[in-house]
Write a protein that binds this DNA or RNA. Structure first.
Lengths: 210, 210
DNA sequence: GAAAAACACGAACGATCGTACTATATTGCG
DNA sequence: CGCAATATAGTACGATCGTTCGTGTTTTTC
């Protein structure tokens, strides 16, 4: 089926390791990820796991990339590929996030957790994290900008402002779900996001609304 | 001035230790706080520091309490004590947060960082953290509720919804300031909070506005 | 199938972790 | 002052950390 390109045994186990490391790091944080615990989980020796990365930091970077890809594939790609540009796509984006964040059975979003862990710890991990987060915010801003171009949102709207506010709600949803297990959090988030969008809707009677 | 209650040497040094631990934990997280590093910082032996708490977890709990008190004293108490109830106090609350979060030179808000670290790690620390966070959110909801009672906000408004949205913006502000060092974040937060409040303002011509 | 390359293991390293125990200073009280 | 209580230091412990190294074993390549 998918490209039958021969994947070496090494690549194969490396991916399995990263996948398990992702689950572990979702629980204990990227900083709490240890090679020993990871080795136990994948049923290998410490040195065997270690050899695939060369350093713990490289392992952490691999896990961070894996997590980012996971978010992208779960939230952004579906919306950008299968939903029409403009307001529908923007709504699909946040709906995708709802699904993503509520489906994480154990441990929250690793990327958000990493933000808290590394927002003040200089180094390669933080640098890469900033890149990833800028990309995600950028994608959101692009979705908003398209909605403005199409006329689904007012021309004078600031894409960065809207993306900021929507992102804020997603942050708060994650917060309240994970810390409070508040079943009303999702509903409140929907209300809030709708309100943000409403605020930037075109004046009535001006072109077809989304 | 303040109660001249004699404070034993032990209490004194314990407070100094917690204060230093707070600074350390702001940098490395509550989970990254180690007794050895803390002992070095305060110029004591490891065992000397340890004896004041009995366990690392108790130290972490003490630091968490210290951090919560710090937020309360910096943000909530001034607003509740010196600013008139209603919209002015609510605005003073968020302004207090702006000041608090922008004044943290090194390391972000320890409580927010702890949320990310412990939102999935059951135990006493998480339990206490939930208590503290519920208290803070509750205070915010109370400030909103007062504004509704007074008539500064519409009677039909849901205090929890408003507090949720305002809190979301404070989360996002903290996020963008610390990760992106975005100088526009504060301005965007103000815009967003104003928009939330505007949405719940009483219908025009109905009683004096705040 | 043989030679070369990649992979995995086990043992050991120095460091640091939290904690326990003992002994010595230092403090507070009568 | 003198005695009891407290506070701090020192040492040592078992565990675990990331990492290195040498040695087999498996996989890939020719």
């Amino acid at each position: 089926m998918s490209k039958p390109r021969t994947i070496s045994k090494g690549q194969q186990t490396r991916e399995a390791i990263v996948s398990q490391a992702y689950d572990l790091a979702r629980r204990d944080g990227l900083e709490g990820l240890t090679i020993g615990a990871l080795a136990d989980r994948v049923g290998m020796s410490k040195s065997g796991v270690f050899a695939h990365f060369g350093s713990r930091e490289d392992l952490q970077l691999a896990v961070l990339e894996y997590a980012t890809t996971h978010v992208t594939n779960s939230v952004f790609l579906p919306a950008f590929k299968t939903v029409a540009r403009g307001l529908p796509r923007l709504r699909a984006l946040v709906e995708g996030w709802y699904g993503f964040v509520t489906s994480l059975e154990r441990g929250g979003c690793l990327v958000l957790a990493a933000v808290g862990e590394y927002d003040d710890k200089p180094g390669p991990i933080r640098d890469q994290l900033v890149v990833y987060q800028r990309q995600m915010r950028g994608q959101m801003e692009r979705a908003v900008a398209m909605a403005i171009e199409i006329g689904h949102l007012r021309a004078a709207s600031d894409p960065k402002q809207i993306a900021f506010e929507v992102y804020a709600m997603l942050l708060a949803l994650h917060h309240d779900l994970r810390l409070f297990s508040d079943p009303l959090a999702l509903q409140r988030t929907r209300t809030a996001v709708d309100a943000v969008i409403d605020r930037f809707l075109p004046a009535e009677g001006a072109g077809d609304p989304g």
